[in-house]
């Protein structure tokens, strides 16, 4: 019989088989990188808001405590989004003419809600409770980042389940004294490797990783 393939097909076929293996693994690696990228997780991406509210200005600049607005954070699952009235506590007096604040005033006038964009939105099947995390010494900053340095808020972390678990598996690496949870510039007094396990013991932190801790 005559040759039906060119000699180059020998190399081509061998390379394509092994190349194919690399291609498949490369594609899988790429997919997993994409899944963790900020493109998918939106971590580090500033969200557009109906009113350009600056945490940096209000917290670092004016020294307003987190709880002034997020009032239920210590006792409820939900930290609370401040009502328009909370804004108007001050803005009925200052910056009353600022066009930027017109949506706030309008909402207040019309008894409507300001349609804020949720920055930290967990899936509906995950049940997160702020109060227990604060009570057990997990600072705002641990999850939300340096909010006091954010002009417009972004999501500091991916909020992927692996991120949740990274702390639940090793709470001693992230825990701080409960009195310091609202401190945006907390620096542990002693090495965390020493303080962490001690706090875990003191506060009876279980670092639960069973399914029903978060999924009910």
């Amino acid at each position: 019989m005559a040759q039906i393939f060119h000699p180059s097909t020998n190399t081509l076929s061998k390379v394509s088989i092994f190349g194919g293996v690399f291609f498949v693994f490369g594609a899988l690696w790429l997919a997993s990188e994409i899944n963790r990228s900020s493109y998918v997780t939106q971590a580090g991406v500033v969200r557009a808001q109906p009113v350009a509210f600056g945490h940096k200005h209000h917290v670092a600049g004016l020294g307003i405590d987190c709880r002034y607005c997020h009032t239920s954070v210590e006792e409820a699952a939900f930290a609370g989004i401040p009502s328009t009235k909370t804004c108007m506590t001050c803005h009925s007096q200052i910056w009353t003419e600022a066009p930027m604040l017109e949506p706030v005033r309008a909402a207040f006038r019309e008894d409507a809600s300001i349609p804020w964009t949720r920055v930290h939105d967990l899936p509906d099947f995950a049940y997160f409770d702020h109060s227990i995390h604060l009570a057990k010494g997990i600072g705002c900053q641990s999850c939300h980042g340096q909010v006091d340095q954010m002009p417009l808020a972004w999501r500091e972390h991916s909020l992927n389940m692996e991120w949740c678990l990274s702390c639940h598996r090793e709470p001693e690496k992230h825990v701080r004294p409960p009195s310091e949870v609202f401190n945006m510039n907390y620096v542990p007094e002693r090495p965390q490797s020493e303080l962490g396990p001690e706090l875990v013991r003191q506060l009876h932190i279980q670092g639960r990783t069973n399914c029903s801790a978060c999924h009910r």
């Binding site: 899988l28 997993s32 899944n35 963790r36 991916s158 992927n160 389940m161 692996e162 991120w163 949740c164 678990l165 990274s166």
Partner: peptide, 8 residues
């Protein structure tokens, strides 16, 4: 089993 974003 693959290293997924759920960490499980």
């Amino acid at each position: 089993p693959y290293p997924n974003t759920m960490g499980m």
